[in-house]
Design a protein around this nucleic acid. Sequence first.
DNA 1: ACAGGATATTCAATCGTTTTAATACAATCG
DNA 2: CGATTGTATTAAAACGATTGAATATCCTGT
Lengths: 357, 357
Amino acid sequence: MPERKSKSARVTLVDVARKSGFSPSTVSIVLSEAPLSRYVAAQTKERIRKTAQALGYRPDIFARSLRSRHSNTIGVLVFDISDPFCVFILKGIEKTLHPTQYLPILMDAHHERKQFERYLDLLMERRVEALIVVANWLFDEGKSLAGLREKKMPLVVVGQDVSKKHIGSVTVDNEAGGYEAMKHLYEFGHRQIAVIRGPAKLSDSQLRWDGMQRFASEYGLRLDPRRIRQLSDTLDPISGFEGGVQLTEELIRSRLKFTGLVAFDDLTALGAVRALARTGRSAPQDCSVIGFDDVPLAALSTPGLTTIRQPMEEMGSLATRRVLDVLREADESREVTPDLQLLPPSLVLRDSTARPS
Amino acid sequence: MPERKSKSARVTLVDVARKSGFSPSTVSIVLSEAPLSRYVAAQTKERIRKTAQALGYRPDIFARSLRSRHSNTIGVLVFDISDPFCVFILKGIEKTLHPTQYLPILMDAHHERKQFERYLDLLMERRVEALIVVANWLFDEGKSLAGLREKKMPLVVVGQDVSKKHIGSVTVDNEAGGYEAMKHLYEFGHRQIAVIRGPAKLSDSQLRWDGMQRFASEYGLRLDPRRIRQLSDTLDPISGFEGGVQLTEELIRSRLKFTGLVAFDDLTALGAVRALARTGRSAPQDCSVIGFDDVPLAALSTPGLTTIRQPMEEMGSLATRRVLDVLREADESREVTPDLQLLPPSLVLRDSTARPS
DNA sequence: ACAGGATATTCAATCGTTTTAATACAATCG
DNA sequence: CGATTGTATTAAAACGATTGAATATCCTGT
């Protein structure tokens, strides 16, 4: 007599139990490697695993999560996935999460506040156990995020410093980066250096500028305010490029000589390169240009863009390890003081900078 | 006397039922807008919704999915998220899914076959109701994917044509694109045109080349085989750039004159631009260069890259609508013949092409 | 006055796990 | 020898929703 025909294709834990001759409890304990499995005879484990394999059993994650109160997922909320800045952070997150039990659930806020809130909500609904926010730009989502602290949801923001709101943050050391950028041009022999600062609302902008000023004062370099420009506060990530083009053209029209230019980021730098070309100049012959970030484009443009690299994959990885740490200490959760972690930038030398001619 | 203190913060459907004075069934029916809610008095609905709101009730998706057998998720498996080609396809998918009940779950195979299989598995485990595969490059995942057909899982591949395996596919019309690229250079007056074809293993390569040949034969243009090169079959998406540099340098060294170059894709084109620059030439003055794809970089490089645009967002959107259609017809699932849908490419004119001097 | 349909609500079973407490037996201890 | 401890397994109660069948009431037409 054939075994009773299963009406649905679904193989359940009870099926495995029946077939293997043990109770559902035991099967569950073995297959989910619960603490109690310490007491299960090796032989039993073996047999259960074999039959599970043979039947092609796959646990139902919904039933499992419902009962165990664990979703085994971590929410990743990114501000704009089309910003090349994000992608390698995501890679870092993913690689770090890969060997763990956790699965990342990725949401893209498309740079819109409403979307951000909505997806944040959706992630809560999906019962993620922790949250990583990848924010290249940030308005004042602090409010939405602060609410999470009360729910004891582990949270780290990467790319922006919100440690003042007692939210764990991972960023590059922007101040050091600004310092390095300026230093690089200075060491090549540039003395008349223009700067395109980032949007005022972005904390990165000030920090990078601080670094440049620190270098200038340490080395007795004068940064003429007339050679300093600032990007406007638009939110579009691409606007850095347009801004770079315009502000560089302005600088050129001002007739004030400059042999080097520190751009806020790579997109701005590419804009500068474009502006130089439009006016019959070129980098680095007529003006050295250095960017910030080291987005993938930087290596592919001509000339290859010299830039200050953010260790993006490492940033993603670090952020991930932080939330994992919190998750592990679950109950004893010592309420680890959420603080800022800075990663060092590094200079990537390509072809857009050279000695002044 | 205060109401009984809830021991957990969790508000459940039963709580709403108690508080509103209706049974859990009714509450469920109302809040999930089940068919039966047609019969529920408007007043009742109102009251239930109000108390749910007041209590801050959020349904438990695990319980819900467990019982209803619906995950309300759609898997999106991308080959390599750092390929700029993908990003806008993802945007298209997301935007199309946004107004629906479905949530995309994104996985990145990191260009590795093993990862691909693993994530495919994970998505099945998560009980996604449909699958969209975003494949810029594709080995022969046909096998893994064919298995899905048997499980009646709606599936569409975007970016590669696997319609021969009876798998729904959405791609750009590569043949037409190749035709257009060649036509553009021809109309500018170029007659000595070099071509860097794509890797042999990529079906795109042949199709684009077919289109170029068709144009050539229609217009009596001779494509000298000595001006034709082909990228090697490496899998790294960035390799297009390196390949572009090398093959263009080869072409230049060959002393064979060419005033225009059709590159396989934008990265290859950027490589060509780099090679020209290295040898003291420049686009478009010494040689017009046209790419394919219109990745974000294309607009930001200097010179801006003339290219054949793939309507990426539209491709993502179309793919999504296709799986949604299948999901809607759930039971009557007429087993819609999975076939290929082609979207038209378009010429984007920038600064890397011009009349020959 | 009653069958039968439409409206409005509820009962109770169920989805597939995990987990707590219980059972059964063997070994060890004082 | 009774009590304790440690192994090995299981029974049964959750987890929080959905759903098919059942109940109850109200119309409406004949």
